[in-house]
């Protein structure tokens, strides 16, 4: 059922993003190519294009935020809730499907942004050189000798790199879930929806502070052992690994807690 919810959520949101992605990529392509060969005949046109492109690049992030808010509001807090909450699915599945789909759009939006910048700067920046650099780093990494925590450096670092990716995903999910929680809190206070905005700021501040303080405390404790043993590489690795572990566990715990809170409020406090 979760996959079906995700499928329909994509269908419901796709038409909001495709036009702006197409506009950004096509405009970037035209401007990036024709501008660089000095196409003066259409200079007036090329004065407008950067403005349009700049607006579109900003607009896609605005659209992302608007869709995140609008879909949750309409679909679960508005009349569409009569349908969504009577589907044979759990509230957790409903929240998770929306979080996953919004998260995917978040990453696509950033990819489109980066692609656009790469197309625009393709004549100024040698991206092939950058890719060669990455491959070079990779070779150096593969040739590294040593072990950390009983496994080879390569595997240990690879695991931590993957874990950093997971932290990135969890951070995005956390941001989306906090927006949802703020929207629900705002909907409970019918005469003052601005409460939703204030609750977003407050929840974000509390959780960021909590996570920041926890990470720093753990890092300070871990840093005390750096240089104590004879293997400095292992000590440094331990320090970085501690930071990544705290970030993973902290973000995961926050995501679960916020999701459970949203599910509880939707079940017990919502009044359609």
């Amino acid at each position: 059922m979760l996959l079906k919810l995700i499928k329909h959520e994509f269908k419901a949101t796709a038409n909001k993003f495709y036009p702006i992605y197409a506009l950004i990529l096509i405009t970037s392509f035209i401007y990036g190519n024709f501008f660089n060969i000095g196409y003066n005949v259409l200079s007036a046109y090329f004065n407008i294009v950067p403005v349009v492109l700049g607006c579109a690049l900003v607009a896609q992030f605005v659209v992302l935020l608007m869709v995140t808010i609008d879909r949750f509001n309409k679909s679960l807090l508005g009349d569409e809730g009569y349908l969504m909450f009577t589907l044979p699915v759990t509230n957790r599945q409903l929240i998770l499907s929306k979080t996953i789909v919004t998260g995917v759009w978040y990453f696509i939006t950033h990819i489109v942004f980066m692609l656009s910048i790469m197309i625009l700067t393709s004549d100024m920046v040698d991206y092939s050189y950058m890719f060669k650099g990455v491959i070079g780093l990779n070779s150096m990494f593969m040739e590294a000798v040593g072990t950390v925590g009983g496994v080879s450096v390569q595997i240990a670092v690879l695991i931590k790199m993957l874990q950093v990716g997971v932290v990135g995903l969890l951070t995005v999910a956390k941001t989306i879930l906090i927006i949802y929680l703020a929207l629900i809190i705002g909907s409970l206070v019918k005469r003052a929806k601005i409460v939703g905005l204030f609750s977003y700021i407050a929840i974000n501040w509390v959780l960021t502070t909590f996570l920041g303080v926890s990470t720093i405390t753990m890092l300070i404790n871990s840093s005390k052992v750096v240089g104590v043993s004879t293997n400095i590489l292992s000590d440094l690795y331990g320090l970085v690994a501690t930071g990544i572990n705290v970030a993973t566990i902290g973000n995961l715990a926050i995501c679960i807690a916020v999701m459970e809170l949203i599910s509880y409020i939707l079940t017990n406090k919502k009044e359609l």
């Binding site: 009349d79 569409e80 809730g81 009569y82 349908l83 009577t86 044979p88």
Partner: peptide, 12 residues
Amino acid sequence: HLDIAYLPERTY
């Protein structure tokens, strides 16, 4: 939810 077919008062 699977057993009940519900027609609400509102357009949903």
